[in-house]
Design a protein around this nucleic acid. Structure first.
Length: 492
RNA sequence: CGGGGCGUAGCGCAGCCAGGUAGCGCACUUGAAUGGGGUUCAAGUGGUCGGAGGUUCAAAUCCUCUCGCCCCGACCA
């Protein structure tokens, strides 16, 4: 995962590889040229640069607010987990064993028991919960943690799959199955709300197949998003763990009837992968396009002048506009770098996805007005001339809201246009070949059927969507009648 | 781990076959002009040619070994 030396040529210095030419390359170009992240000297790891990290901080803030609103509190559990903990839940260890990083030496001495660098924290949190929970009065426990985890991945991609990544993991324990199930679905809903209303990414909520679920869960739920190339990206997951981890870690409590019972637990996580989702949902051939609500910078002011005589007045207005936007709580930047041309700055900020550009030149000074240029509508079409400085903050605010809505509308249209329904396996293969995207089908197959389809087409069941207006029908693969609907797609 | 490819300035590359002063573009620095969509000119800075060993008067170039990386095939938030 180092700079690709000598791979392909064009990389024409300016701009990014067009999506149509090479989508994977476009993605890497955007990440690096927009300075979201960089490669690290350690294979599979990445450095999140300030611009990318600010984006992540905005994601964190929007999620954290929602977690608090639903009664959760934050805590922190350690990075190192005794190896034996992982082994307590059979399916869990089997799922994670191949991708564990293990510490065997500490302080120059061989450790008695190897320590696993957490790939996720169900085990150590389960261990602690078993000590904290005695009575039904102690329940529910609603804790979230922000942290990092390590999974030794074979093939990595910036943000989408890295060996170490940042995320949050919620871990809750409940007295009843019903309550834990409700929590699982509630938090999935929180993720969906965040994705749609903050990231402007339309997502489909649904249940994972048994093949695709989290190792150790009874059921996993997901929000699935469609990327610009039609591939699916699992953008957040919520797991109903039943009593699996409670049994493995002795999380027991006395219920109201004075009977000892195992708690019901859930876990749910959303990671820096969300940054990748944002890039691939909204980005275009100019580069990044960020939703205003999460963008590190919502508006950038570019001053323009010809003669030195004009400079002072332009600068003065630019400063004034900057101040009034800041006062209105808009995340703005004044790009007064003297050594760069205005045209360069236009392209630069477009590549970095700033939702709104404010151009201020001598003509604007005369009118006491500015030019607004929308990132989501390229070229002159996206420009509004002569926007008065009086009331500008409100106009900018309104424009940002419009852009946010437009991004969601556009992404939803793209997803819907690339979602197809098929009735037979031949049609299925044809649709994947010709158009890609999401394929909705009736499904009554087995896990083995799922494996076979994956092998033959590389498409997997992304989820069984909650919303399935199609009702009962015939499974495209087995021909059996069923009311279950599945969405298949190629996935990251 | 199997197959393919690549290591020369921060990035992209040429030079290697036919050994002989280490080059080009971009970036960077300085200066001047320019400035409403990637501006131009000039002068500069920057390299143990991935590493080790060998052949040779002389190695980026030839030989041997070695390290690293990328791409494609078995896993995944």
């Amino acid at each position: 995962m180092r700079p690709l030396r000598g791979v392909g040529k064009p990389m024409a210095e300016k701009g990014v590889t067009p999506r149509s030419a090479d989508y994977a390359r476009w993605y890497t170009d955007v990440v690096q040229k927009a300075e979201l992240a960089d490669y690290s000297p350690v294979k599979g790891c990445m450095v999140i640069r300030p611009y990318g990290y600010t984006l992540w901080e905005n994601i964190q803030a929007a999620l954290d607010r929602r977690f608090k609103d639903t009664g959760h509190v934050n805590a922190y559990f350690p990075l190192f987990i005794p190896m034996s903990f992982l082994q307590k839940e059979a399916e869990h260890v089997q799922g994670f064993a191949p991708e564990l990083a293990v510490v065997t030496v500490g302080g120059g001495k061989e450790l008695d028991e190897p320590l696993v660098v957490r790939p996720t924290s169900e085990t150590i949190i389960g261990h602690m919960y078993s000590q904290w929970i005695r009575s039904y009065r102690d329940l529910p426990v609603l804790i979230n943690q922000w942290g990092n985890v390590v999974r030794w991945e074979l093939r990595t991609r910036l943000f989408l799959r890295t060996t170490e990544f940042l995320w949050q993991e919620g871990h809750t324990a409940h007295a009843t199955e019903q309550e834990a199930l409700e929590e699982t679905i509630r938090m999935l809903g929180v993720y969906a709300d965040f994705a749609i209303n903050e990231a402007a990414i339309p997502v489909i909520q649904g249940k994972k197949s048994q093949r695709e679920k989290f190792a150790g869960a009874v059921d996993s739920y997901t929000i699935e998003a469609m990327m610009g190339n039609g591939w699916a990206l699992q953008s957040g997951t919520s797991h109903f763990l039943g009593q699996n981890f409670a049994r493995a870690f002795d999380i027991t409590f006395l219920n109201q009837n004075n009977e000892l019972d195992h708690a019901w637990t859930t876990s749910w996580g959303l990671s820096t992968r969300m940054v990748g989702a944002i890039i691939m949902t909204h980005g275009d051939d100019q580069g990044l396009v960020l939703p205003p609500r999460l963008a590190p910078l919502q508006a950038v002011i570019v001053p323009i002048w010809r003669k030195d005589a004009e400079q002072a007045a332009v600068r003065e207005l630019a400063q004034r506009v900057f101040a009034l936007l800041k006062a209105a709580g808009i995340r703005a930047k004044l790009d007064d770098r003297d050594e760069l041309s205005a045209g360069f700055k236009f392209n630069d900020w477009e590549m970095r996805g700033v939702p709104l550009r404010i151009e201020i030149g001598p003509r604007d000074v005369e009118q006491n007005a500015v030019v607004l240029a929308r990132r989501d509508v390229p070229g002159k079409e996206g420009k509004t001339f002569g926007v008065p400085v009086d009331g500008l903050a409100a106009a900018v605010d309104a424009m940002l809201t419009t852009i946010q809505a437009n991004l969601l509308r556009r992404a939803t249209a793209h997803r819907d246009a690339n979602t197809h329904t098929v009735a037979t396996y031949d049609e299925f293969k044809q649709a994947l070949e010709d158009r890609g995207g999401f394929i909705r089908v009736h499904w009554a197959g087995t896990g083995e059927d799922e494996d076979r389809i994956k092998e033959e087409t590389k498409a997997t069941i992304r989820c069984f969507p909650f919303e399935k207006p199609e009702g009962e029908g015939v499974c495209f693969y087995t021909g059996r009648r069923t009311d279950q609907v599945a969405i298949f797609a190629r996935a990251y």
